[in-house]
Design a protein around this nucleic acid. Sequence first.
DNA 1: TTATTTAGTGAAAACCATTTCCATTAATAG
DNA 2: CTATTAATGGAAATGGTTTTCACTAAATAA
Lengths: 157, 157
Amino acid sequence: MPRGECRGQGWWHGKFRGCGYRLTLGREVILDILSKSEGHLSAEDIYMKVHPKYPSVGLTTVYRTLDVLSSLGMVYKLDFGDGRARYEFAEGPKGAHHHHHLVCTDCNKVIDYTDFIDDEIELLNQTEKGLSKKYNFKIANHLIQFYGLCEKCSAKK
Amino acid sequence: MPRGECRGQGWWHGKFRGCGYRLTLGREVILDILSKSEGHLSAEDIYMKVHPKYPSVGLTTVYRTLDVLSSLGMVYKLDFGDGRARYEFAEGPKGAHHHHHLVCTDCNKVIDYTDFIDDEIELLNQTEKGLSKKYNFKIANHLIQFYGLCEKCSAKK
DNA sequence: TTATTTAGTGAAAACCATTTCCATTAATAG
DNA sequence: CTATTAATGGAAATGGTTTTCACTAAATAA
């Protein structure tokens, strides 16, 4: 991804600048990786993908950029209980394929599911409204995860 | 909590022994603290509460015991994103007052809510059934958290 | 354009919750 | 009571993440 192809073209350009953040090579590259990758990448995963092409981008910058992206709501920071944070792209304004997670407590495998999402979301919206009012809480986001054993791990037992 | 008052009396005695775990002073004390405390305690919180009366119980044992309790399903291990795990008592078999969480992303305050829980649980049960079948996943537990700004923090802005 | 300002950066060091190591202690079985 | 071995405490190690600091470069002013 040569710089010229991207600079100023992504829909996120304005978002960065609008919040007073500078648009740097590192940030573009990391955002690019995230937007193109399925799944849940750790900071190190991202560093590994970035480093071959852009050895000048360090792990520190990956962490710092993920923080910024996270605070801008462009990336979700997730915890699956294995001691390292995972990040996933937040899919722009249309929230294209929102999903929830099934987490295997044995092998830490994570399955994204979109089944039942519509019903879940509908209920969540109601719940959010009620909770916001009752607790004066400005809800920005939610997390739903199911924990258990994946097919392989429950067979092993 | 003198040892004699407790040894062999708690409903968890059998659970421990049945799983091949020994019933030790440390485990009893930690379980006692958890069962009497409202809220979400970190390992260090628990250590601080235990240490004055039982200085012989070390932080390592707290961690180890929490692991055991967690694997027995007697305690839930929670993550609110502030870098340390929190633990809460799982309320025995009747699941007395199951609740979900509202987490403030600014001050890390956590509100337990039980409102809307019935509808949520009902939907979750359906969803669980569907997911279990489709993905051959044995669901043992779920996590629902809403993230946002608490009253104080949204006023500050 | 060039100069100025200051946000952003890489590398190494620090941080800190948690885990591991190991010699010792104590709960349970016989 | 004795033997067995799970459990323990304290210190050290671990490892993901954050901080420090001197340096670089993006944005802005001249």
